[in-house]
Write a protein that binds this DNA or RNA. Structure first.
Lengths: 301, 301
DNA sequence: AGATTTTATTAGATATATTTAAACAAAAAT
DNA sequence: ATTTTTGTTTAAATATATCTAATAAAATCT
């Protein structure tokens, strides 16, 4: 499996021109070449680019980063984006979970995550354990410590847990606000969205969960046949600012009478313009607060 | 959202050459063109192509099919691939489910599918209701009777059900055969695979469920670090024969000491060669029988 | 077998994406 | 203020994908 330079552009949010000039000036990447002379990148190169971009965004100069060896970059990356947080207990928990995951030991992983959910509740477990776990998985992939199979394996068990908890909730009444949840076509990671679905249902909101890879056209058709108060989507992937803006502009046009809520990658969302009408959830706590208020309000009647 | 001619090639399994000649001779499709002169297809054209291919595979000549109007093709398609089966009761059931789905009425859909699972068991419900429902959804999409959002909505509820049932099973012991379940990178529809996971677990097999979009490289890494007896994957999408063959050849190389099981689109799988070492599950019943035998065997001890 | 239909192959022309290289503009550092 | 670093724009050349058109080969039907 190889990537073209425009694939890398999509995946990293760095213009192809810039990728080339980084190669020329700083030998940032050293892609293979096709029979012709076209650059071909593999996963290793993609990871390196993503790491360079991350370090660059946190203040290091490209020239400095690229003057380091591959190992040097990994080391610096480690320093900057350390696996461990300030919560020792959660860290230990997460490490154990990952250890089971690497061994594909579903039984142990299952027992441990059930225990976490039992003691913290699903939302609490997500905040303290699952979300940091997912972040750490991402970092580990970037260091080639895990492969996609590990991530798929763990994510599917987590999906199983959240789905089960949703299934065990009482069905929502006809009252309450209605939320349409989806991810755009190029997004894959639906676990955050699933948790949002759970939390909204807990607060007796109505949820229409569409999951990942929903074409905007289709969202448009839904909104034209159905009254929906809120639309919630995540933008997690790195993108070119222009691509992200286009998506949001199109969605805004579609959602003339629906409140748009956005969550995800702050690097991407932060660069958007003309989003006064859009609500940006910068944290889970913010989301929790927003969706709880109406419920409290209703109780007054 | 538009498709290039090579996108259509991927999605339909028809060579771009052939797509062009069908256009020239029979006016099969009438794509838009770019500023240059490059063909651009939309969803409607894609659906029409898929319908033409289906009709062609079931015996109609391209010339005959394309001599019909769009409505004529839809009509013929209806005749050939009718929504209804021989089981009136299941048909009614499915129609009701779809009716709720089209209205995004999760509550009603939920109640009805729970009832089906209760009376038929999850596997029975899958065979009689869910699988035919998924097939019908596919047909409906091809007639533009539903949009992707509907399918996503329904599929996620079904996922929820299967995941919940898996979660409620007792964890597998260390005994039993181990099965690695995954879909290749270009496959999306994981519900069949999920049900396979459930059925294997019911028979006390160990399952490593990776889900959709797993790179072969990653499967390779898993197999090199872990002893696995069986690998199961689905090929559901239409593909070029060459692409399907390449995938299977690569997998075969990886799985030198692991039994490969394959299920899915018989049009695609039927064209594969050098697959003597691969087991092709042509039906759910066949799968059920294969995985039950060892369990019966164990009980003798 | 012979005719018809369908698919595959070839070739040269055009469109689009990528490449190199240089010049330019903006931002950051000194 | 000046230099250095960094990112963008431009241009012309090449690679790759797509276009048309004609022909060859294969499959299917009568």
């Amino acid at each position: 499996m190889t990537y073209s330079i425009s694939d890398l552009e999509q995946l990293s949010g760095i213009h192809s021109h810039t990728i080339r000039i980084w190669e020329q000036r700083y030998k940032a990447l050293s892609p293979m070449r096709s029979q012709g002379n076209t650059r071909l990148y593999d996963d290793k190169q993609l990871r390196k680019l993503l790491n360079i971009v991350s370090l660059n965004k946190s203040g290091f100069k490209i020239s400095k980063i690229c003057s380091l060896s591959d190992e040097g970059i990994e080391k610096l990356f480690d320093q900057q984006f350390s696996y461990s947080s300030d919560d020792d207990q959660a860290d230990y928990y997460i490490s154990q979970l990952i250890r089971h995951g690497l061994a594909f030991d579903e039984r142990s992983f299952n027992a441990l995550i059930d225990q976490g959910i039992y003691s913290l509740g699903l939302a609490g477990c997500y905040r303290k354990i699952i979300y940091p776990l997912l972040v750490r998985l991402g970092l580990m992939w970037r260091k080639d410590d895990i492969c996609p199979a590990h991530e798929h394996f763990l994510c599917n068990i987590i999906r199983q847990k959240i789905f089960t908890h949703i299934n065990n909730l009482q069905p929502a009444g006809q009252s309450g606000e209605s939320w349409l949840l989806f991810l755009p076509e190029d997004e894959d990671h639906d676990i955050g969205l699933l948790l949002a679905s759970y939390m909204l249902r807990m607060q007796h909101h109505q949820v229409i969960f569409l999951g990942s890879k929903v074409p905007l056209d289709s969202v448009k058709r839904v909104l034209s046949t159905l009254k929906v108060s809120h639309v919630l989507l995540f933008m997690i992937k790195s993108r070119l600012a222009a691509a992200a803006q286009k998506l949001i502009d199109q969605l805004s046009e579609i959602c003339s009478s629906t409140k748009i809520h956005l969550a995800g990658n702050s690097q991407v969302i932060g660069k958007l313009t003309h989003i006064d009408h859009i609500n940006w959830f910068k944290s889970l706590a913010e989301f929790e607060k927003t969706i709880q208020y109406p419920a409290l309000h209703e109780r007054n009647f």
